[in-house]
């Protein structure tokens, strides 16, 4: 049973294009998944001068307390392969969200209050 709203608004797409679209998106998905799960993970961030999160040891207690999943999520997100490259791209992306002022200094938000 298909949703009536979906049926009404959608038009049939050629099969060839559907396959191309699925293959293209899945290729990016699979590529990133393979890379992120198999490439060596860094242990230290030189730019941030800190140790990255470590993979936690699984125990039944740590699982049921939620500690294992929390630390594993942190490790998975923090110790990403080629982390410094992605951080650089993110920084570039954010720098190019708009037009920069000539002096290179940007004020974002109201200045904090100075207590007298």
């Amino acid at each position: 049973m298909k949703n009536k709203n979906t049926e009404k608004t959608e038009k049939k797409t050629p099969r060839g294009f559907l396959i191309f679209n699925i293959a293209a998106i899945l290729a990016v998905f699979a590529g990133i998944a393979v890379f992120i799960n198999t490439a060596p993970r860094p242990t230290v961030s030189e730019e941030e001068q800190r140790e990255l999160a470590k993979c936690p040891r699984f125990t039944v207690e740590s699982y049921f307390s939620g500690e294992f999943t929390e630390k594993f999520s942190e490790y998975y997100n923090d110790a990403v392969p080629m982390r410094s490259v992605w951080k650089l791209i993110i920084s570039e992306f954010r720098d190019n969200l708009g037009i920069k002022s000539d002096d290179g200094v940007d004020f974002i938000g109201p200045l904090p209050e100075i207590e007298k």
């Binding site: 294009f17 951080k87 993110i90």
Partner: peptide, 21 residues
């Protein structure tokens, strides 16, 4: 249609990179 697919690929890649941070 093709541009939409390419755009989707780019958006997925960019979203994934932004999630690192």
């Amino acid at each position: 249609s093709m541009s939409g697919t390419v755009l989707c690929m780019g958006m997925l890649l960019l979203s994934s990179i932004l999630l690192v941070d």
